[in-house]
Computed example of a mutant assay.
Amino acid sequence: MQPGGFQYAAGEHPAEGWSYREALVETSRLAELATLPAAGTLALEALRIAAWRPRAVTELDERAIPHEFDWLRSAVHLAKGCYRGQETVAKVHNLGHPPRRLVLLHLDGSDAVLPDAGAEVRLGRPDDEGAVVGRVTASARHHELGPIALALVKRSADVASELTIDAAGVLVPAVQQVIVPPGAGATADVPRLPRLGAR
């Protein structure tokens, strides 16, 4: 976690050891890299998802705020003054709750399909007609975890409930691993005062 940050995820964050970097190499020097292990972009995407590392291209939309992605731990300094969006960040962190939360989905791999970005996340088992509670933002096959995905779900979605994702017509059962808990925020613990005239 960065100085001045705040982590919503409980326990050790899987991105603690994340050290991904990109470098441009001249074509004439490619032979020098022949001894290094190589992997493709699909493997990189699976590692990113398993490390709970959201990416602007896949996870962000016009309504996104840092709290939904647990970015307060690595990208926001809560003790600094005056930056764009400071009021929203401070208000949600101290008094409110983010409306959505990022979760890691462990997908049933029986059908060997992965949901596309934007696939609906529904409450309940595949035979239920549960309410839509979110959308998949990215999915991949991890070398140890199997099929996984990141999804943004409503804060009110029960953390213990089973979920179903529509992967191109195949209903895939999933369970969520909490990244941002439903109670994230409201760290100021301001007591609620009774309304005037209430009995």
Rank of each mutant, 00 (worst) to 15 (best):
L114S: 10
E129C: 00
R84D: 10
I165C: 11
P181L: 05
S28Q: 12
P147R: 08
A157E: 09
A117L: 05
H13Q: 03
A119F: 05
G146T: 00
E45D: 14
A46F: 04
G146I: 09
S28G: 07
P37C: 08
A75Q: 13
T88E: 06
L47Y: 01
D128P: 15
V153M: 03
L171K: 09
R101P: 02
R122F: 05
W52C: 13
P182F: 03
A149T: 06
L150W: 07
T41M: 14
A157Q: 09
L44A: 14
P182G: 00
R29L: 11
R141D: 13
R155P: 04
R63W: 11
G185Q: 04
A56V: 06
S28A: 08
E129Y: 02
Q177W: 02
G146A: 08
I179D: 00
P191N: 09
V190W: 07
M1C: 14
P54C: 02
L104F: 02
C82Q: 08
E162C: 12
L104G: 01
A38C: 12
I179F: 01
R73N: 00
G109A: 06
S28C: 03
T88V: 13
A9P: 01
Q7K: 04
P115Y: 04
P191Y: 09
A184K: 00
G4F: 07
S139T: 10
R141M: 05
V92K: 00
H13M: 03
R122W: 05
L114W: 12
P194F: 05
T187C: 03
T58H: 15
V133S: 07
N94C: 11
K91L: 09
P181Q: 07
T41G: 11
P54R: 03
G197H: 01
G146C: 08
L107H: 10
C82P: 09
R73T: 06
L123W: 06
T187P: 00
Y8V: 01
V178G: 03
V57W: 14
D166S: 09
A50S: 12
L36Q: 12
T187F: 04
L150I: 00
G130W: 03
T164A: 03
V153H: 00
R21L: 05
L171D: 02
D127F: 00
L150R: 11
H13S: 08
A23E: 09
V103N: 01
A90D: 10
A188K: 04
S28Y: 05
V175W: 02
E12A: 15
Y83D: 09
R101N: 02
A46T: 05
H143R: 15
P66I: 03
A119K: 06
L72H: 10
G11Q: 14
A198W: 04
L193D: 07
S139F: 07
K154Y: 00
H67W: 03
V178T: 11
D108M: 02
H143A: 13
R100H: 08
